[in-house]
């Protein structure tokens, strides 16, 4: 019961803030609502017994990436952009595309609802202890992707420095 209340609360919060992210005129307000959406997602992760991912989402996404976003928004002075047209002429096409996409997935869910709604979930204990299990998979089965991800981060770091520095 509590599970479901928590899920629907966070789901509603995530969707409402996501809509506000793409509709707000002011980029800082968009960023604030994106933080809310990300934290709501973190709450859903917690509800799904993914404690480690919950805290990764909070530290990395909300506390790291979003601070970077807000930092850049404040660095690039947006006062001028605030009074310009915020949406381009494709908005109608975009709405149609995403509506079609949503309809497709809804249809897919409707077709397979018997299995989707009755599939028994694995016991919650199968994910515990969460941090240890994540670490085990990350450093045994997925150690090569892990190393590749580290190289990706290095490349991104070098790229960002080269891009943002005035004289290299």
């Amino acid at each position: 019961m509590l599970d479901q209340v928590v899920f629907y609360f966070f789901a509603a919060l995530a969707i409402v803030s996501a809509i506000l992210v793409v509709t707000r005129r002011n980029a800082v307000q968009s960023a604030i609502f994106l933080v809310t959406a990300l934290l709501a997602t973190a709450g859903i992760f917690l509800n799904l017994n993914a404690e480690f991912l919950f805290i990764v989402q909070v530290i990395l996404y909300a506390g790291g990436i979003m601070v970077l976003f807000i930092f850049v928004i404040m660095l690039v002075n947006l006062d001028v952009a605030l009074h310009q047209v915020q949406f381009n002429r494709q908005w109608f096409v975009a709405l149609i595309i995403s509506a079609v996409l949503a309809a497709q997935v809804a249809a897919a869910i409707a077709v397979s609802r018997r299995t989707l709604y009755t599939m028994p979930a694995a016991p919650a204990e199968s994910l515990q202890p969460n941090t240890e299990r994540v670490a085990f998979y990350l450093f045994h089965t997925y150690v090569l992707p892990f190393e590749i991800a580290s190289i990706l981060l290095l490349v991104a770091m070098v790229g960002a420095v080269v891009m943002a520095k005035k004289r290299v």
């Binding site: 599970d3 793409v22 869910i109």
Partner: peptide, 30 residues
């Protein structure tokens, strides 16, 4: 656990909103 279909719905909703944002907004940061 909440049925998996609801999670898919939530995920699709966020995906659709995100696509609308990517395609329609003019501000690169958004």
């Amino acid at each position: 656990m909440v049925p998996i279909g609801h999670y898919i719905f939530l995920s699709v909703a966020l995906l659709a909103i995100g696509i609308v944002g990517v395609v329609t907004r003019r501000n690169v940061i958004i």
